[in-house]
Each structure stands twice: as C-alpha cells, then as structure tokens.
Design a protein around this nucleic acid. Structure first.
Lengths: 154, 154
DNA sequence: CAGAATCCTCATTGATACTG
DNA sequence: CAGTATCAATGAGGATTCTG
C-alpha cells in the first residue's frame, strides 16, 4: 500500500498542469478509459469476444452511434481488434488485443476498490448532504441584482 | 495477470447495462474519478496537503470554478477533507482522507500501465490512421442530399 | 485567499433515418 | 447485421464578476 507513492512520484515529475495529455500519463489514461463507455466495452470483451449486437445487448443503454465510435477509438488505440466475417448479413467480431489485456489488471484493481468502498462513499455522501445540506460553504446573502429572468427567448 | 478475471467476473454479475451507477461498480468508479480533474487532485494531494491556491497552481489549467466543484465533490464522497483556518485572509487546506488514500494503489496501477503502454498506444494510433486514413469502414458513396451547409446562423 | 453566482460556449451524447 | 450521416439536446466546463 506504499508502492503507490512511487508511481505518484514518478508521475509528479510531469508538469501535472497544462500538459495536453501528451506527456502526462494520468490525462493519457483518462482520455482513454475515462469516457462513458470504453471501460464497459473492455470489461465485456474481457470475458469473451463479442459481436457488435452482442455488445449492444450487453450494455443496451448505449446508442449504436456511441457503440461504433467507442469501438473505433479502442481499435485505433490498439486495445481491441476487429474481425469482419464476410457473411450475409455481415458479422463483425471484436476481441481484446494484447494491449487491452494488459489493461485488465489495473482495471480490476479499480473495480475491487469500487466494490469495497462504494458503501463508505455513499455513507460519506449522505453525511455530507445532511450536514452541508444548506449553508453551502459560506453564506452569501445573494445581493439582489436582477430577477433571474434568464431565458434565451429563441 | 489472471486474477483480473476474478474481478471482471465478479463485476459481470451486475447487469452491466442500464444500471444507473447504483449497482454497477464500474460506472460508480468512473463517475467518481473519471472526470477531467478528480484524479489530478488526488494525485496532488497524495504528495502532501495543499491549499486552494496551491492546487490551482499545481494544475493551473483548471478554472477556479471547476477546482471548487471538484474539491467539493471529492469531499462529499469522503475522499478528501477540508480544513478551514480562520486567518485573515482565510486559508483552506485539503488533504487526502483515508478513503482517498485507499484509492492510491489502484490508481498507481493505472498510471503504471499508462506509463508502460502509451508508446504502444501512440504507435497503434499512427498505424491505424495511416491505414484507415480514408475509407472509414465501409464505403458509402454519400448520396448527395443537401450540401453540408450546416451552420446555426445565430 | 477562497470561494459563489451568473452567463455562455462547445464537446459529448442521444435519436432518428438510411444503407450494403 | 453493422454500421454511416445528420440533427437536436444536454451538460460539462470556461470566463467573468462579486464577496467575506
């Protein structure tokens, strides 16, 4: 539980700010799996190869548009591979590339953490909401300016 | 490199789709650290406590608005704590809560992965772009409909 | 200094219709 | 089936201004 610091410190040699994710590994990884669907895709494909529709059914609250785009980005980054079988109708299978496999362990660590801690998190959240429910942080009397009429009126 | 599957499978017992991040640990963790700044904050605070402005300088391409909001969310979830020193001018210090500490190891695993693999990823990306540069996926002749004039014309 | 409040823009996503 | 193309809506995030 302390070798984490080594990674943190190694990371901290980067500017940490302003880097356009070119040098900063944190932003790099977040841009890759931090989006809404990539990690779900990786998870599904970790079990076994899936066809397009299978993935759609597995996640089923993703739109076809985002499914296509997410898979395309993952393929582009070399995390998954795409195999087209020229049947009729066509059938396309996606599988985890070795690079994607190498991501499974780090991801599993994160999932384990989420599993262990989501209870504490929800508890903390409930506590926070109960405490700071009102009184946001400081109390600004909200000097009356203009009545909040704020409609763009097409 | 195989105990990852245990986590994956444990995860796969969840519906995987449609869950509003209430039951799905993957979405849970992504909603928490998958945003643009949370992980950076955790990293910075992993080294030592920081004051508001210190964090702003450390990241310095975050706006004060997002800095405030991100810190607030992290505090709400119990990952960091906030200590107000009633000096003049006020000074507020943020530190990692135990719950936040527990996240360091999983995060470090991810950072390590990013460090090791971003080279391969960029290579794969360049390869993909060179290959599929045009010819997106299938070749649709793009039946001429309307010229792509598509400006909202305020 | 450490935020809050307001406004506004653009990127991400969803919905729909179409195709080989 | 496995996408593509287009449009519409949402929401995250930035810029600015104000306060104790």
């Amino acid at each position: 539980m302390s070798n984490a610091l080594s990674a943190i410190e190694r990371f901290s040699r980067y500017p940490l700010g302003e880097s356009q994710s070119v040098h900063c590994p944190v932003r790099d990884v977040l841009d890759r799996i931090g989006d809404k669907w990539s990690m779900l895709m990786i998870m599904a494909l970790a079990m076994r190869p899936h066809r397009f529709s299978e993935l759609h059914r597995a996640v089923h609250d993703i739109s076809k548009r985002m499914l296509t785009q997410t898979l395309r980005d993952l393929e582009r980054d070399g995390l998954i591979t795409r195999h087209v079988f020229p049947t009729k109708p066509p059938s396309v299978e996606y599988r985890l590339a070795p690079l994607g496999q190498s991501l499974l362990d780090p991801m599993a660590g994160l999932i384990d953490w989420a599993d262990r801690c989501h209870g504490d998190i929800h508890a903390a959240r409930a506590r926070f909401d109960a405490t700071h429910g009102d009184v946001p942080r400081q109390v600004f009397p909200a000097r009356s300016k203009v009545p909040p009429v704020h409609k763009k009126m097409a």
